[in-house]
Simulated scan of single mutants.
Amino acid sequence: MMKKRKIWAGLSTAVLVAAPIASQAADVTAYPQAAFETKADQNLLQLAQAHQGHGAPVKPAASMDGEGDEGGASGENLAPQLHLYRGIEMIRGHLLVGNELIEAGRWADALPHFLHPEEEIYAGLREDLKTFNVAPFQAALKSLSQTVKAKNKDAYTRARAALDERLAAAETAVRSKETNGMYFTLETALEVLQQAADEYGEAIEKNRIANVVEYQDARGFVFEADRLVGAVMRDASAKNPDAAKALKASLDELKAVFPAVTPPKQPVKDASDFLSTIAKFELQLGNFR
């Protein structure tokens, strides 16, 4: 069984890629990769040539389910294991950028990133947690956000460790069901990057970073995706060194969009260029099935 995924090559251009549902990846015959990559590279080249000198940002469509649709329709068609893992890693992305702000003494700025996991993500994971027999962790999320509200560093450290333990248990429960853990991890990273694109698009208005929280959300998701890929990079490099290098190059390009937790006055990339870079990442995934 195949599903069609739309990957964005930039302004008004998309490529439809046939990708296996994660749980059935091992049973699906991949398309000839060389021909596919050549065609995709031509599409990206044509797009770049067509839009030289045009820097107008394109904002991804916003959802009615909240900022960037973190817990809404963008993940509703995913297989349960991918939906759950995506949600966990998005929570980790929030914690990552929130912790950066706490380390800088910016507790008030950090607080939204500790509220969003419970407010925007957790409700959508409840059924998945039951499916994989994972203990609920909403109370741990709430306890952590309370320590941030109180600006209590010692309590924060303890609550963060407790939540990390619960998240790690959930990750282990999901990964234990996967036969191709490397591909599953890369597919999860892609889903997190696509959410980062939504957040980044919401952050930009009239060629400036107008929404700092959304910029920081996108930063957290990109750096969390980078952490995920780094965890399987040795195996990826052993399987296909060139494709692994291309994955890393795409991630390095995305990370450069976020030079610091405080956004630059003007975006490093517009939203369409950001999506184009994610498309380059996605085009390599077929090499790791």
Rank of each mutant, 00 (worst) to 15 (best):
F223N: 01
D235W: 00
D109Q: 11
W8F: 14
G124K: 13
E187Q: 14
E191C: 11
D273N: 05
A260Y: 09
M90R: 05
A218D: 01
P259Q: 09
A62V: 10
Y215F: 11
L78R: 05
A155D: 03
N99A: 09
R234S: 11
A14I: 12
V148L: 04
V222R: 00
K265Q: 10
S176T: 12
E37K: 07
H54G: 09
K269V: 06
A108I: 07
V17S: 08
A170D: 02
A140G: 12
N180Q: 02
I121E: 04
I91W: 03
E178G: 03
D69P: 07
A19W: 02
L95N: 01
E202W: 06
K177H: 06
R227P: 07
K3H: 07
R160A: 06
K255H: 09
E89Q: 14
L84M: 06
L275F: 08
S237K: 08
A150V: 07
E205D: 15
I121H: 06
S250F: 05
I278T: 03
T29D: 09
G98S: 03
V58K: 06
E253Q: 13
S74T: 10
A244R: 01
A79R: 08
Y200N: 12
Q49I: 14
G105R: 03
A203L: 03
T29W: 11
R92T: 00
T172D: 15
E214A: 10
K6R: 15
L285V: 10
S250I: 06
D252A: 11
G53R: 04
D69R: 05
A48D: 15
K245E: 11
E70R: 04
E214P: 03
V15M: 07
E103M: 11
Q42R: 12
V174D: 02
P267N: 11
S237M: 05
A243Y: 04
T29C: 11
P60L: 12
L144I: 10
P20R: 02
R5A: 11
F184L: 06
V148G: 01
N240R: 01
L44F: 13
L163N: 00
L111I: 04
T262W: 05
L82Q: 04
E282A: 04
A238P: 05
V232E: 01
V212D: 02
V17I: 13
R106N: 08
K206N: 12
P60V: 04
E76W: 12
P20W: 01
L84Q: 01
A218V: 00
E118L: 06
L78F: 09
A260N: 12
E37G: 05
L167Y: 00
G68I: 01
E120C: 05
I102W: 04
G105T: 01
R86C: 05
L45P: 06
G105N: 02
Q52A: 14
F288P: 00
M1S: 14
A73R: 10
P32Q: 08
G220L: 01
A238C: 00
K206T: 09
A110W: 02
P263Y: 00
F36P: 00
Q138S: 15
T38R: 10
Q49A: 13
L115A: 08
A50H: 10
E89R: 11
V58Q: 10
D41R: 09
